[in-house]
Nucleic acid binder design. Structure first.
Lengths: 173, 173
DNA sequence: GCAATACTGTATGGCAACGTACAGTATGTG
DNA sequence: CACATACTGTACGTTGCCATACAGTATTGC
């Protein structure tokens, strides 16, 4: 449990924003997973329950999109939650291809506990961060996501130009 | 390739920072992996090569810590890079437990191409973001990492208090 | 109506990383 | 010196997710 990658915290000079970003994301997952462990859930499962609890019966594909994982992956997540009786699959009357994933009674109870864990942890994470700082963070990350999306979409030129840039990587982002 | 989770971009109202963070991290990985594909490398491998290229022969445990993955995982990464002749394992004279992972000649050549890819992509990611915005991002994320680390270290109280908080989750972070 | 196309969920194989356990080696302590 | 403890790298099984391929169903165009 104390085996965290706390080395990141002292920010060695070569640390780039992408490393910080990914390390932070890892920590987010670990933190939520740790706090959700008493409920025997991980972050993905809790997010799914929270979503259907808040927005009602949802198609698997929609769930996958909203949770940011693939359609294949969401299936097994639902399987396990369904086996525990936390969600159920209902046929959609006018489309026989899809399942509507809905929350059950025991799922509703659990959703409230999830909500508590979520709020407690989130409050701890806010510590020392002002409101506008958090909003700025969200804004910059959204912008970064856009840049990433276009960068991914743009096909890289396969032939790398032989210009050797000797500038050390120092600059963040 | 166009199967990105672009749904995140329009920021639905329920989207929390942890989702944004993790989605962004995923995109970072995908973006780098895509750009590094012509070199037949992924982000982890490229980071490892970049590290030993910049800082010289390094112990596997140190590499694992700096790259933010476990000791077990770093072994197979090195195995593959070594099989391609990009790095080599040198025995450390005064400690027969460890290997020093050093870069080879062909690894050095590749490191320069990695550096180029890195700088090009990073320049694209900077688009529309000012310097102080990027620095603010880094600062907030570092702070967030600290909060996450203490939150993880703090043992969660197993018995959840029965106070039901009906506040919808809206607030970022 | 009917064929072509698009979409949904599932099965399958693969991958990267984790956690644990272990043997080999160093280091400290009596 | 002997012993206990700590550390390094590896082996092994598990997990979570992806990408692809596929069958079943809707939808569109003629």
């Amino acid at each position: 449990m104390s085996n965290l990658t706390t080395h990141e915290l002292d920010s060695p000079p070569w640390l780039r924003v992408e490393s910080t970003l990914m390390a932070t994301a890892r920590l987010v997952r670990v933190a939520f997973d740790t706090r959700l462990a008493p409920l025997d859930l991980n972050l993905t499962q809790a997010s799914l329950i929270g979503y259907v609890h808040e927005f009602g019966a949802t198609t698997q594909t929609d769930l996958a999109d909203h949770l940011g994982i693939g359609r294949a992956a969401i299936g097994s997540v639902i399987d396990r939650l369904q086996a525990r009786g936390l969600v159920e699959r209902q046929p959609k009357p006018d489309d026989r291809r899809v399942w509507l994933v809905a929350i059950t009674e025991s799922g509703t109870e659990l959703a409230q506990q999830i909500n508590e864990v979520d709020q407690v942890l989130r409050a701890e994470l806010r510590h020392g961060l002002g409101r506008e700082e958090r909003q700025a963070l969200a804004w910059v990350m959204t912008r970064l996501q856009q840049n990433l999306a276009t960068a991914i979409a743009k096909t890289p030129i396969s032939t790398v130009s032989p210009t050797i840039s000797t500038t050390p990587i120092g600059e963040p982002i």
